[in-house]
Design a binder for these strands. Structure first.
Length: 439
DNA sequence: ATGCCTTTGAAGGTG
DNA sequence: CACCTTCAAAGGCAT
C-alpha cells in the first residue's frame, strides 16, 4: 500500500508537507561533519576520479582511449568491442565501490513515509502546509524567484560538479537546482496569470537543463494551471477512480495552451503512444497521466484485437494494459535532473557509468540537498497515490522482462544474494540513512 | 529486438 | 522484523 500518511501519527495527519516543526536537529553532527569533509575533500571529484581510475586500472595496457577528454580509460567506444566488453564486465565490480559513510538520521526523530527525517526539514522559504499539486510551470518564467528561494544552492553545482579539468565543461552552471527550484516554487494561491510564453519545441538532447528541469512527469503533469475534471482513465477495472479532492480537482489537465510552455521532459504529453485515454488525441481528456505508459510502448491498434481469439485478445489486452509506472524516488529524481550535467561534463553516455557517478554525488550531497529530493519524492508518491489509490507497485511486477540474473542466481547461489547478485554487498554497505523512529 | 548494466529508494512478499 | 525481490530512469552495449 502506498505510504501516504492517512492522518495518523503525530504529524498532524494529512499533508504535513513542509511543516515547520519538522525541522529536526541531528545528533550525529560529527558524522555530518564527516560527510561535509568528505564532500569537500573527496566528493564528486573523487567520484569520477575513482571511476576513471577503475577504468584505467582495468584497462591497463589498453591503448589510451578517447573517452573523457584527457582521461584515459573512459573511452569505451575507442577500444575493440571485446576489450570494451571485458571492461564493461569489470567496469565497476560490485565490490569496487567504497561508499562513503552513510548519512544517518538522528535517533529519536520522526520520519514521514520513509524519508529520512532530515529530509523533512522545512525547505527554505517554502510555505506550509503545501499542497503537492500546487506547482506550476509558471515557475519556468520565474526562475529568479525560485533561485531566491534557494540562493545558497546556486553555487552548489560548481562545488559539487566535476570541476576536474578533464570534466569541466561549465554547462552545468546554467541550472542545477532548477528542477527543485521550480518544483518548490509555489504559484500564487489564485493560480491566476499562469500563462508563460510559449516556447519552441524542445529537444531532449539539445535542451539541457537551462531553466528546464528534468522533472518527473508526475510533477510536470500537475504543473499545468488548467484543470480537467479527472485524470486519464488508465485502468478502470483495476485502478479506482482517483480521489477528487478539492486540492486535486484543479490540477488534472493540460490544455493545448499550456503545451507550449512544457519542456521537453513532458514529451509524454503529445506522444501518440501515450494517448491511450478515453478521448481524442490532442484533447486534454485523452492525456494520460505521465506515469502511464502502454505496456507495449506502442500505440494500441484496437482493430487488431478483433482478429484475435478471445484468449489471445485477453492476453494481449492484459499485456497492453497501460502501465502505471512507479513514482520516482528521491535518487531517481536527482538522477533525472543531474544526468544531463554529468553527460555534458564528462562526455559520458553510458548510463551505468553515469549512474555510478551520480550515486556518489548523491552521497556527497548535503542533507539539505538530499532533503529536497526526498521531499519531492514524497510529494510524488502522494500525488501518485491520490491519482491511483488502488495501484500497487506489484502491478508492474513481471511487466519488465525477467532478467537473466535469475539464472545467475541459480548457477552461483551457494550464498544469499539477490537477483542482481548485489545484495550481500549492499547489505554490507552501511545504509545511507537509518530509518527514523517515530516518537 | 531485447536485455544488461548501474545507481538508490520504495514497496511488497516471505519466513 | 529482517531480509529479499522488483521496479523506477537512462542509454550504450551485447546477444
Amino acid at each position: 500500500m502506498p505510504q501516504l500518511d492517512s492522518g495518523g501519527g503525530g504529524s498532524g495527519g494529512g499533508d504535513d508537507l513542509g511543516a515547520p516543526d519538522e525541522l529536526l536537529a541531528f545528533q550525529d553532527e560529527g558524522e555530518e561533519q564527516d560527510d561535509k569533509s568528505r564532500d569537500s575533500a573527496a566528493g564528486p571529484e573523487r567520484d569520477l576520479a575513482e571511476l576513471k581510475s577503475s577504468l584505467v586500472n582495468e584497462s591497463e595496457g589498453a591503448a589510451g582511449g578517447a573517452g573523457i577528454p584527457g582521461v584515459p580509460g573512459t573511452g569505451a567506444g575507442t577500444r575493440g568491442e571485446a576489450e570494451v566488453s571485458a571492461r564493461r564486465r569489470q567496469l565497476l565490480p560490485r565490490g569496487h565501490r567504497a561508499p562513503p559513510p552513510p548519512l544517518r538520521a538522528a535517533p529519536g526523530v520522526s520520519s514521514v513515509q520513509g524519508a529520512p527525517v532530515w529530509a523533512l526539514a522545512p525547505t527554505p522559504a517554502v510555505p506550509a502546509p503545501l499542497t503537492p499539486l500546487r506547482f506550476s510551470l509558471q515557475a519556468l518564467g520565474r526562475e529568479h524567484a525560485a533561485q531566491r528561494l534557494f540562493p545558497d544552492k546556486l553555487p552548489e553545482p560548481l562545488e559539487d560538479g566535476l570541476k576536474a579539468p578533464e570534466c569541466a565543461s561549465g554547462m552545468y552552471k546554467e541550472t542545477v537546482y532548477s528542477a527543485f527550484n521550480l518544483l518548490m516554487h509555489y504559484p500564487p494561491a489564485s493560480g491566476a496569470g499562469q500563462h508563460p510564453q510559449p516556447q519552441p519545441p524542445l529537444h531532449k538532447a539539445s535542451q539541457p537543463a537551462h531553466g528546464v528541469p528534468q522533472l518527473s512527469p508526475l510533477y510536470e503533469h500537475f504543473s499545468s494551471p488548467h484543470p480537467t475534471p479527472a485524470p486519464v482513465d488508465i485502468s478502470q477495472k483495476q485502478v479506482p477512480r482517483p480521489l477528487q479532492t478539492p486540492d486535486l480537482s484543479g490540477f488534472y489537465s493540460l490544455t493545448s495552451g499550456s503545451m507550449g510552455q512544457l519542456p521537453h521532459t513532458v514529451s509524454w504529453f503529445t506522444h501518440p503512444s501515450l494517448m491511450l485515454g478515453s478521448g481524442v488525441p490532442g484533447h486534454p481528456a485523452a492525456i494520460p497521466h505521465p506515469t502511464i505508459v502502454p505496456a507495449s510502448g506502442k500505440e494500441l491498434q484496437p482493430y487488431d484485437r478483433n482478429l484475435k481469439t478471445q484468449a489471445e485478445s485477453k492476453a494481449e489486452k492484459e499485456a497492453k494494459k497501460p502501465t502505471i509506472k512507479k513514482p520516482l524516488n528521491a535518487f531517481m529524481l536527482y538522477m533525472k535532473e543531474m544526468r544531463a550535467k554529468v553527460i555534458a561534463e564528462c562526455t559520458l553516455k553510458e548510463s551505468a557509468a553515469i549512474n555510478q557517478i551520480l550515486g556518489r554525488r548523491w552521497h556527497a550531497l548535503s542533507r539539505e540537498e538530499q532533503a529536497k529530493y526526498y521531499e519531492l519524492a514524497r510529494k510524488e508518491r502522494q500525488l501518485h497515490m491520490q491519482l491511483y489509490p488502488g495501484w500497487s507497485a506489484r502491478d508492474n511486477y513481471g511487466k519488465k522482462k525477467r532478467r537473466s540474473r535469475e539464472k545467475h542466481q541459480e548457477s552461483t547461489t551457494g550464498g544469499k544474494r539477490n537477483a542482481f547478485g548485489t545484495y550481500p554487498e549492499k547489505a554490507a554497505t552501511p545504509a545511507p540513512f537509518l530509518p527514523m523512529t517515530v516518537l
